[in-house]
Amino acid sequence: MKLILAIISNDDSTALIRGLNKESYQVTKLATTGGFLRAGNTTLLIGCEAEKVQRAIEIIEKYSSQREELVPNTAGYDMGAFSTYPVKVTVGGATVFVLDVEQFLKL
């Protein structure tokens, strides 16, 4: 048994969850916040058998597209100064962790 933790953009979460559910993956959705852009994202918990992990990763990759966005420059806020010029950053994509599950109970 494996546990997949997938951190994705909020914008990608609905389509990704539908794609996973369509192939019988059960998903738990958590609302989380990223540390770099301080923006909301979604963390998915997906439990599955070891042989289904690669397919789940393929689905995550399909629905988690990277794209560039302009965001406010917050680099100087902590130093008492700020810039009004937006910065182009890459957002989206997915960060995926696959963990071994020692025990799984459904009570």
Rank of each mutant, 00 (worst) to 15 (best):
Y77M: 15
I59V: 09
K52C: 06
G35A: 14
F104Q: 09
S9W: 01
K2C: 06
F97S: 07
G40Q: 12
V27H: 02
L105W: 08
V96T: 08
Y77F: 14
G40I: 06
F97V: 07
V71H: 09
I4V: 09
Q54G: 07
V53A: 02
Q66M: 10
V101K: 06
A15L: 13
S64G: 05
E58M: 08
I4K: 01
I4E: 00
R38W: 08
L20W: 00
L45M: 14
P86F: 06
K2R: 14
E68N: 12
Y63E: 03
K62N: 05
Y63K: 02
V27D: 01
F82L: 15
Y25G: 02
N10I: 14
G93Y: 00
F104A: 13
G19Y: 03
Q54A: 14
V27L: 04
M1T: 07
L3V: 08
V101R: 04
L44R: 01
K2N: 12
K106P: 02
V53H: 01
S9G: 08
N21D: 07
L30H: 10
R55N: 11
E69F: 04
E23Q: 11
L99K: 06
L5Y: 06
L44N: 00
V101E: 08
A6V: 00
I17W: 02
V87Y: 04
E102N: 13
V96K: 01
N73C: 08
A31D: 15
I7D: 07
Q26M: 12
V91Y: 00
T90Y: 01
T74Q: 14
L37R: 00
I8E: 01
I4G: 00
Y25L: 02
S13H: 04
V53S: 04
K106S: 13
S9L: 01
R55C: 06
V71M: 10
A39M: 13
P72R: 09
T84E: 14
A50P: 08
I60F: 03
G19T: 03
K88V: 14
Y63C: 01
S65P: 06
V71S: 03
A31K: 13
I59E: 00
N21T: 11
T43M: 15
T32P: 04
T32V: 15
E69R: 11
Y25V: 03
E58L: 10
T90F: 03
T33F: 14
P72W: 05
M1Q: 09
E69G: 01
F104C: 11
E58K: 10
G40K: 10
L3E: 05
Y77I: 15
S64N: 05
N73W: 06
V53P: 02
T42M: 03
E23F: 05
N73S: 12
T14K: 15
L107P: 09
S13K: 07
K52A: 12
V89H: 02
A15N: 12
V91I: 11
I57L: 15
T32A: 15
L99D: 05
T95F: 13
R18I: 11
E61P: 01
G92A: 01
F36W: 08
L99R: 04
I57K: 11
R55Q: 15
L16S: 00
A56L: 03
K62T: 10
